[in-house]
Nucleic acid binder design. Structure first.
Lengths: 153, 153
DNA sequence: GGTGAAATTTTAGGTGC
DNA sequence: GCACCTAAAATTTCACC
């Protein structure tokens, strides 16, 4: 891969605002639009730039609640892990999921409009999954920080 | 706010791909480009569409490790919460932070290139913060799911 | 990596339904 | 409030240096 200063600068700018024009990015990165756009295409082809997305405000669309779930499975065989992964990837309420070290197997962030919906999520989704040993929920009172900008370098 | 079907559809499309042309969005949402773009502008003005960003692959840029920190403060006075919030918002390694109910006060996701950097983060950042009672770290082995797409409706 | 022109797209305005 | 059309402005794209 080998990213130089200019690549890092481009990634930083695009992570903050994907609607910047090639001209503006070029100016900020210290080169002209064409090579700038060429670098961006290369970063896209290499998969370093995964995509461009719009960010939606959770509260504004009636989804104020984030719940974190610690999940333990009964067995950690590949088959079990695969089944769990496939399931949560189908469920739109689950926006993040990590395979963890330590006490629990998975950490999930689930987004719901209210507690009733959360109950429904647990009852109709999680509890019907086979192989789940335990679930522990903690509720987020507020989002103190949320960014897609990675600390590159 | 009152989002209708078309608004929800537009938000869904833009959350997946912000580079869609107004024409393509209009086609998929079942209307013509002009009113489609008008709706998008309104969603932006209302703050429902918070912005457009590029997503960067964590591993590709040498940041394979996500660590989750459970943090408890000694006191939960507004002053303490403010100071903590201000600090973590300054630190680029912290990509997510939630104020939580229950045992801990905060849940953080920290992104680092290696364990050495994580140690440095704990030593030079977290441990120098006043008012922190305890920190508990768990490591993510892999990211099973990560999406910005919210389950609207 | 830079320059410049062509092609596509975005954006705004105006009319009728 | 939307569809449709038109036109101008801006941006991306791709030649070549």
């Amino acid at each position: 891969m080998a990213l130089d200063r200019i690549d890092v600068k481009i990634l930083e700018l695009l992570q903050r605002d994907a609607h910047m024009t090639a001209q503006a990015i070029a100016d900020a990165a210290g080169l002209s639009p064409s090579p700038c756009l060429r670098r961006i295409r290369i970063l896209e082809e290499k998969g370093i730039l995964k995509g461009y997305v719009a960010l939606v405000d959770q509260k504004s669309v009636g989804l104020p609640i984030s719940v974190f779930l610690s999940v333990r499975l009964e067995r950690q065989r590949e088959e079990e892990l695969e089944r769990f992964s496939a399931a949560i990837n189908r469920w739109p309420e689950v926006v993040e999921c990590y395979l963890m070290t330590g006490q629990r197997d998975y950490l999930l962030r689930v987004v719901v409009p209210d507690l009733e919906s959360y109950e429904a999520f647990i009852k109709t989704r999680m509890s019907r999954l086979e192989g789940v040993a335990s679930i522990e929920s903690s509720f987020a009172l507020s989002q103190v920080k949320y960014t897609n900008v990675l600390p590159i370098r």
